[in-house]
Amino acid sequence: MKYDLVLRVVAKLLIPFILLFALYVQFHGDFGPGGGFQAGTIFGAGIIFYGLIFGVDTARSVLPDWVVESMLAAGVLLFAGVGIAGLLLGGNYLDYFVLDKNAVIGQHRGIFWVEAGVFITVAGVMLKIFYMFALRGRPED
């Protein structure tokens, strides 16, 4: 598969648009279909596609292991951190309306960061699972 010209050319054409679409789905998620879970899986699928065509090591040089592993935890921490920010600003845990003077803008801000947290964790987990399965197949050196 590594030397299949058609696949490589098509992949090069498609992957930027897949990643761009993932970001569109993430940031346009308030107004159209989309959100953190969808964008995270699409982003993960895009990088996995890249890894399948060009080899896992190429994908790992784009997003190294330590980045992916910290993405796993960073997303959950960001999500939980939004809740704690709500606590510090005088609301209950995961109350968003205290995040701004205007309650509706506070809601939007909370939803944005929460969705960002979901995106980071989901994309990280998809990629980490793929790396793990792909690297397990190699003989130990």
Binding site: G35, F37, Q38, V122, V125, M126, I129, F133
Partner: peptide, 12 residues
């Protein structure tokens, strides 16, 4: 929506 993503993680 959440169940699908959890589903693939547990499948893995």
């Amino acid at each position: 929506l959440t169940a699908i993503v959890v589903g693939v993680a547990t499948l893995a």
